[in-house]
Design a protein around this nucleic acid. Sequence first.
DNA 1: TGGAATGTTGGAAC
DNA 2: CGTTCCAACATTCC
Length: 246
Amino acid sequence: MPEGPSIVLLKEQIQGFIGHPVINVRGNSKAGIDKIEGTSIKGIHSWGKHLLISLSNDLTVKIHFMLFGSSSVNEKKQNRNERLGIDLDNGEINFYACSVKFLEGDLNELYDWSSDVMSDSWNAALAFKKIKQHEGELICDVLLDQEIFSGVGNIIKNEVLFRKRINPESLTGKIPKNLIKAIIQDSRDYSFQFLEWKRAFVLKKNYQVHTKKICPRCNIPLIKKQHLGSRKRRAFFCGNCQHLYI
DNA sequence: TGGAATGTTGGAAC
DNA sequence: CGTTCCAACATTCC
């Protein structure tokens, strides 16, 4: 469940555990999860693809799902070992195949919430400033930069570039400023659209280009590049209606 | 059915 | 010493 909106959805689903005591801690994580025992849940936050569970002992559990991670709330997955399971007095949350780490100290010092496209504190003007430092990079790489667009993943990248009609191989510095601003705006708008489609279990059927073969605008074959950019991620795009700026 | 993917880190290699 | 490359992680889907 890797991209930012999926983490926001999970965060919503476990809000009811805030303020509740931990009854038992399970799992094969080597992060020292016994530190969770005897605490209660103080708060639940997210930053980009990070799920952050703050505890009453002032530690925060940071969950990152990487590519394959998953979770289940108030049930266990069959035939799977939990990486981390937390039993509360009103339910349980289980995490599988994810990275578990502990953070110490004030989250506000550790995270810049204004770079999270899903955050109330999202700052589009700041994103624009940061992008100026990356004008020599391809736009497909810049959109995946978690310091600029925290929470944007490969699906959101492909869909936003299609929606804004920009070829992923475009050189960032050559894209007109108004279009850079449009990309920044849509990275947030589309992420919230992604959230609502995911919530309604209709995300995948709403992909326009990601994993698709035909351009829904031009009705011609899409281009698929397997390892595009310095991040070497899959790109799906239309060579006709997505303009290349070089 | 096997290969690849909604991702990141850390260490080796250059 | 900076950068770039690669393995590792480990599950689901087509």
